[in-house]
Design a protein around this nucleic acid. Sequence first.
DNA 1: TCGCATCTTGACACCTTCTTGATGGCAGCC
DNA 2: GGCTGCCATCAAGAAGGTGTCAAGATGCGA
Lengths: 235, 235
Amino acid sequence: MSEAGPLVLLVEDEPQMRRFLRATLTARGFRLVEAETIAAAEIAATSQPPDLVLLDLGLPDGDGIDFARRLRGWTQVPILVISARGREADKVEALDAGADDYVTKPFGVDELLARMRVALRHAARAQSGVAEPLLEIGALRIDLARREVAVDGRALHPTPIEWKLLVLLARNAGKVITHRQILREVWGPGEGHQTHTVRVHMASLRKKLETDPAQPRWLLTEPGVGYRLREASDA
Amino acid sequence: MSEAGPLVLLVEDEPQMRRFLRATLTARGFRLVEAETIAAAEIAATSQPPDLVLLDLGLPDGDGIDFARRLRGWTQVPILVISARGREADKVEALDAGADDYVTKPFGVDELLARMRVALRHAARAQSGVAEPLLEIGALRIDLARREVAVDGRALHPTPIEWKLLVLLARNAGKVITHRQILREVWGPGEGHQTHTVRVHMASLRKKLETDPAQPRWLLTEPGVGYRLREASDA
DNA sequence: TCGCATCTTGACACCTTCTTGATGGCAGCC
DNA sequence: GGCTGCCATCAAGAAGGTGTCAAGATGCGA
């Protein structure tokens, strides 16, 4: 069960502080993208939109506050400023520029984590009811949030493994997924699992999904390679 | 024509600090309601819902953190804690209890005002969506403000944990909530809790809510994943 | 201090799900 | 034809999740 943690963009030029935060945050399950300069941060923020930004002021190539202001122009991602500047005017400027919180160095890790939780809480609340993750492949509808699958309006009741299997294939509809990939994504990076097990679960999934499991409409076998979910456009 | 500023509930027992904040805030156009005790604050919060709460910890009649937690049970109003306690553990506890920010005394007025602006900014963004103190799912009615539940007109009396559990599921009616989510939302981000405990509380909640706990109408089990509250539209 | 409500933990039975092994089909190749 | 590799299906035991009961711990108000 590897739920991917929130993605944090860390904008910080001191290597020491970066190393420290990297260790702390990855240990807590956060995924991390790092940037040493504002230029790099701009690219990272657009190419891989984070769930939260940890922003150090006083970077080599410009003021972090301007970066925060530009970010606010197009996204509501929580911005948490970490700065050595403790002057009140600095805090006010950053907060009014769009930052959501301001922590002065040196700071306690637990406090930082707690404030990050607050920021993520706010973001989650704002986003709720907006994005409904829904996969649709022809008559096959997969609602990720509700964990429901339906073919031609008929609801299925997949077991946990069948669900993971189906979502994996549906997310890559049309592409071939190798046995190896399936084992890694569904069963985790550990070993000791066999391709045979995949076949058994595929069979039970077909029994639920297909009208004629012997002549699959959706779950196609790629002999010697793996499996593939038929795309909507396929014949 | 003086536009009415945001309504601030100030919970603070020191007369000196109250006088100071009253002067500062009214000068900036805020309207103010003051409370010296938690009991008074509870009444004020319900009778005159504020736009923001300034909460001092260490009040004469109880812990301000509990007040914050109760408040969070039915409203999303921003809570800004002002405290003389500067210990990190205190901050973490308050923030995890639902506070949105934590300022230690002595503080700068400008910083406080900036943080209040941030909080109000968040609230304004969140309120553009919804703010429903009454959840209705079929014959199930949940009054968040009054902390009351009723099925088919019959009132339930849930324990604190059962209440949190039910509200969590009702807020996400139809969606599956994983065991992990339940533990995090109901018991807090700390660890050391087991899914077994969830099952026990779910059982007792079913006993109160369902006519036949063995054949649940509302509280559905998603094997291997979590639980789900049936939507009104479901069969 | 006692009693009450609540929460946690352990034990156990029940059931679903998962894994593994066995068997047969099918195609390609010697 | 016989062999080999790959796949699908079935069946049975193993493993793990779920619901329930009950005992002990904890906290709170009388």
